[in-house]
Structures are given as C-alpha cells and as structure tokens.
Amino acid sequence: MAKLATLSNLSLQELNTNPTFEISNQQLENIWENIVQLSKNELVGLHFGTTMQTAALGVVGQVIQMSNTIKEALQHASSMMHLITDFYRMQVEEKAKTFTITFQKNNGFDRFPIAQNQMGDFLMAFTLYELKGLLLENPKPLKASFPTYKNSYDKEFENILKCASKYSSHYILEFRKEYLQTKIISANYETQRIFIEQINQLQNPETLSGDFSNRIFNFLLANSYLYSLSIESVARNFNISVRTLQRKLKEEGFSYLQIVEEVRKSLAIHYIKNGSSSVKEISAVLGYAEPSGFVRAFKKWTGKTPTAYRNEI
C-alpha cells in the first residue's frame, strides 16, 4: 500500500487521517496504472469487482440494499452513479423477455484511459456479484459485452461472468427479465430487525478462547447481515494480509473456516428461534448456495432440521 501511494504521488498518512481528502482523476489514473504494473494483471479491475461489497459504497449501498425489488435497486444505482464515479453513467433498459444494464463512458475523460477502462471492468464484475447477493439465486447473464474485451482473455471473462463475452462500444450485461421483480430480503423490516437490532444478543462461543479469534468472530457477526465476507475483505479490515490473518488464527488453534462455521451456527440458531424468515431466506443470507446445504449443516449442529427445531420451540 505504501509503495502504491508513493508511486502514485499520494500521502498515505493524509489518506488515512483526513476524511475530506479528495483524489483527483489524474491521481486515480496514476493509481490504476501502478496497480496494473505492480500486479502484472491487466484484468485487475475485473477481479477487484468480484471482492468489493455494496456496504463499501456508503449511503449509496444502503439505499440499494434497502430497496424493495431488484428493479428499484437498479433504478437507485443508476440515479446515484455520479456519487460512485465520474467516468460512467448507468442505464437499465427493459425488453420483452430480458433487461440490460449498460455503463456508458462519459465525455471528457479520454485523458484517463487506464482508470476509465479498469473502472468499467470493475463495475461489470461488481454489478454481477452484488446481484448475486441481492437475489436468492445465482444469476447468470445471457450476454456480456466489453470495450476492453480481447480474445486472449476469453476464458477469464467467462470464468468470472459465467457467460460468453464479446467486444462492444459499451459495457453491457443482459439478464432474464423476471429478476427485476425479485424482492430483496434486506428490505423486509422483520428480517432487518433480526439481523441488526438483536445481533448483539449473541454470545461468543466457548470454543473460541483466543483474543484474535474472538475479534474475527465478532467482526463477522456484526457484518453478517450484509453478505458472507471473504477472508480477503476481513484481512483488509484488520489492515493485515490474508497470510498474517491465517497465521495469527493458527497460533490460537483455529482456522478462518472454523470461525465462519461458528458464526453461521450462532446466527442460524438465533434466526430460527427468534424470527419468521424462511429456511430459504436464512440459507441465502448465511451464504449457502442451496437451502439443502444449510439444512444438512443445521442438522449436524443441532441434530434436527431447521423446521423441526423451530416447531419444537
């Protein structure tokens, strides 16, 4: 981080301590250029988009998460795109059986080609992965188009986007139209109440005896209502590398996956006991790809299925 700041002519101290510090478009261009060079990865923006979460967008992220439907969330995102980046405007267009999300380049930023292209790649991956978080299923685009598309990157684009990609003058994602009317779980008041207001009623499990392990547990617990957090995002929050996080946990006799499992277990039992959310909703929030996986895990933890456990209570 220090090396990147130095190469980009930024003051890391001011960046960390001054809440009103602004980065110019030229500095942003320098940052992206140095990131590409240091990582030796021309698709770093695309990869970055798969790891970032809506919560990092501040008030914009909150508005998106509290929208009633996917359509409403996308409309809000479109109207507030200028708060995220000057480089693009976002448009959502409904068709007979599909809808498209298009990111069009704004004029006047040709002097910053690296930053603009990397941000475009980022927006494509970020949008797809956040739709995955808002929906109760894994959305696969029907099509994806990129101004930065190259045949040599075909496999990488397909691996991240889960569909074939092609060249286009704009960044475009196309999905089945029925996704638009899908309700967003975080917009439900009862679910919000359980996820946020009652979360501090949970106690750290006795099995986690180490100080660092408990800090990780509490962080995951406090942020679990957003999405299942990756080890990379947790490490960034603690300003350490993934390797250091793993080493510190190992010194206390734990792994990151063990703590994630403890968080899931605590939350699962709490949600089943205290709320009216369905097994499918709880399964999605806890990061399970399918409800069946959650049911198996819950039975392993308690000896009962979630439905049987709730009925007994």
Rank of each mutant, 00 (worst) to 15 (best):
197 E>W: 09
43 L>E: 10
280 K>V: 08
79 S>R: 15
118 Q>M: 10
140 K>D: 06
260 V>T: 09
302 T>I: 14
52 M>C: 13
52 M>N: 11
85 T>Y: 05
254 F>V: 10
54 T>G: 08
31 I>Y: 07
182 T>E: 13
167 Y>E: 14
131 L>N: 00
38 L>A: 08
313 I>S: 02
153 Y>F: 04
38 L>V: 05
91 Q>R: 15
313 I>N: 05
277 S>A: 03
196 I>D: 00
209 S>G: 07
302 T>C: 12
70 I>L: 15
51 T>K: 14
110 D>V: 10
179 Y>F: 15
130 E>L: 04
138 N>P: 04
247 R>V: 06
108 G>T: 01
50 T>L: 09
187 A>P: 10
142 L>P: 01
175 F>D: 10
160 I>M: 12
216 I>E: 11
83 L>I: 05
238 F>T: 04
209 S>D: 04
167 Y>N: 10
150 K>S: 13
119 M>H: 06
57 L>A: 09
44 V>W: 09
65 Q>E: 14
134 L>V: 08
231 I>G: 10
158 E>V: 14
155 K>V: 12
175 F>Q: 09
4 L>V: 02
124 M>K: 02
261 E>W: 03
209 S>R: 08
262 E>T: 00
18 N>H: 01
89 R>M: 01
122 F>V: 01
80 M>S: 15
124 M>A: 11
112 F>L: 00
103 F>R: 15
236 R>Y: 03
34 N>I: 04
224 S>M: 01
127 T>Y: 09
202 L>H: 00
230 S>T: 06
258 Q>G: 07
298 F>Y: 05
151 N>Q: 14
233 S>F: 08
298 F>E: 03
